[in-house]
Simulated assay, not measured.
Amino acid sequence: MKMEDIARIANVSKSAVSLALSGKPGISEETRFKILKIVKESGYLPRSMIKADKVYGLTKTLRFVACTNSGIVLEQYYKQPFFMELIHDIEEQCRSRGYSLFFSSIQTDNLEDAIETMETEHESNGIILLGTNLTQEQIRLIAQKQINLVVLDTCLETFNANFIVMNNVMGAYQAGRHLLDLGHRQIGYVQSNSRMYNFNSRKKGFLQALAEEQLSVDDEHFFSVSPTVVSSQDEFIQKIKALKTPMPTALFCECDYIAISTIKSLNELGIRVPQDISIIGFDNIQESTIITPELTTVHVEKGKIAELAVTKLFDMIENGDSVKMKSFIDTQLVVRQSCRAVGAAEAQPSLLSY
Rank of each mutant, 00 (worst) to 15 (best):
E41T: 02
V165H: 02
T68A: 06
P274Q: 09
K326D: 12
V55I: 15
I115P: 11
Q93V: 11
K37G: 03
C253D: 08
Y189I: 04
L266Y: 11
V229Q: 07
L352G: 00
T158E: 15
E294N: 13
G343D: 04
E75L: 09
R185N: 09
R202Q: 02
V12Q: 09
E121T: 11
P293W: 01
L295Q: 03
P293I: 01
N193T: 04
F236R: 03
L45C: 13
F252N: 10
N69T: 14
S288L: 05
K324H: 11
R185T: 14
A344Y: 00
A347R: 04
F159A: 09
Q286M: 05
I290R: 03
E318A: 03
S18R: 08
Q208M: 11
L62W: 00
Q146T: 14
A114S: 15
T31Q: 05
I147M: 07
L134Q: 07
S48Q: 10
D283A: 08
V229N: 08
N168K: 07
R63K: 08
N319Q: 14
A309D: 06
R63D: 00
I38D: 01
F314Q: 13
F64D: 01
F199Q: 06
C255E: 13
F282R: 05
E121H: 12
A242L: 12
S194T: 12
R177K: 14
I6W: 02
V334P: 00
L243N: 14
G270D: 09
L243T: 13
I280Y: 05
E116Q: 14
D219A: 14
L215Q: 06
S338Q: 01
S15N: 11
H178N: 03
K204A: 13
E157R: 15
F223S: 08
S224Y: 15
A66I: 01
N148E: 11
N284I: 04
V17E: 04
K326S: 13
S338A: 01
E4W: 00
Q348V: 00
R185H: 11
L152N: 04
N167E: 13
D53S: 11
A66V: 10
I240W: 06
D315W: 02
I9D: 07
Q214I: 06
H221S: 13
R140H: 10
A341F: 00
M84I: 01
Q286W: 07
F236C: 12
S226L: 12
I38L: 13
D234L: 11
A309T: 08
R97Q: 13
S265Q: 14
M49N: 03
Q275S: 09
V165N: 10
L308D: 06
E92K: 15
S265A: 14
V17M: 07
I139F: 08
V298F: 01
M118I: 15
N133M: 12
L352I: 00
A143T: 08
Y56G: 08
V65A: 02
K34E: 12
S216H: 05
I27W: 00
T154N: 15
I90K: 04
S124H: 04
N11T: 03
T296Y: 00
K2N: 07
I305F: 07
I127A: 07
F199P: 02
Q233M: 05
T68G: 05
L111P: 13
A161S: 15
I9Y: 06
E112H: 15
